[in-house]
Design a protein around this nucleic acid. Sequence first.
DNA 1: GTCTATAGGATGATAGAC
DNA 2: GTCTATCATCCTATAGAC
Lengths: 211, 211
Amino acid sequence: MSSVTPTDDETAAPGRRMSSDERREQILLAALAVFGARGYEGTTTDEVARAAGVSQPYVVRLFGTKENLFLAVLQLAFDRLMATFRAELARTDGDEPTAKRIGNAYIALLSVRGLHQTLSHAFLLGAHPVIGPEARACFSRVWEFLRTEAGYSGEEAQLFLAQGMLINTLIGLRLITDYDADRNIKELFEACFPTELKSVMRLVPRAGDPW
Amino acid sequence: MSSVTPTDDETAAPGRRMSSDERREQILLAALAVFGARGYEGTTTDEVARAAGVSQPYVVRLFGTKENLFLAVLQLAFDRLMATFRAELARTDGDEPTAKRIGNAYIALLSVRGLHQTLSHAFLLGAHPVIGPEARACFSRVWEFLRTEAGYSGEEAQLFLAQGMLINTLIGLRLITDYDADRNIKELFEACFPTELKSVMRLVPRAGDPW
DNA sequence: GTCTATAGGATGATAGAC
DNA sequence: GTCTATCATCCTATAGAC
């Protein structure tokens, strides 16, 4: 696999000195992209460091261990997810139903590189003694949000989560890669996104993409 | 994480000499459990070897590379999945609708340790140059089966896949671990399995389980 | 705040015996 | 068909300078 190239806003001007908080945020965003593309075990602290434009030991210095770094990245991803959902729920303009709008907000979050895939990877780490409990807590809170804040019924919440997990799978598989070559895939995408297909195709990563 | 203990039928009597095909099958089943629990990158050929009761170099000897081993395991998982779906579709006894029965067959497949989780891991490897295309092909063929053989509409097929991916997530997260302690999780399981909850709880792995 | 150098510990794969 | 021994590489984390 090729390296995970960071986008400009994740990379500092080389060598520029910045505050600990600035660096932390910058490294976390770079790590989000790398963990998303490679998974927890597949990611090296060195690759995160290169994506962030700092040295490998410095990444370890700031976060202590790779495990800690992943936990911080998971927290970032989860916080952004919930903030996005809550912001969409709070909007009063627009005529679309709430469920539809929150779903679209989830799609729009694809612009944050690695967010969906990092969550997916975390959701496969349930057997991990430290990451597992954190990941379960995140999932539990999404359910609570849907039922309590968004007012979904159990059935609606279940359906929403299921479709979210399918979207995550399409992304992790880079399934859009075969859209033109495989009639099944075209049909699948049309069934999944009857109205938003155009914007989805613009946001979803392809097999060759480095993130 | 603790080691992935193989079940008896995956472990040969120590040192017993067997045919290449027997060993191959035995190692593949052990590898399915380990890859499912740890993922592709997180799995070592040594752990697969220990789970299968053979030496690490012998695993490499039989499959060439770890990548090849994973591809063989993926193929095994996919073949079992399709065979199970087709067998259920062909059954004419019973009064439940087809969709329900195929869904239940997917649950029953949980008795094959690591199958769902290995598929989940493969579905996150879309950026991998070798595994990615294989995994996409598997997903495409499931879609084709649902539409062509099972006669699902696009919407039905999409819903079936979405619920399958949610089930995979519940398993990968070991979410059942929190069933008694977390009201949200209880609600979630009740919404996901309104009728089959009892049997699901018997089959789903917990956080402490080594597979 | 950030780097270079490097220790120490896996891990995938090969060589070669039995 | 299967093992032991081992190499070469990679990776996390530490030490310590600037």
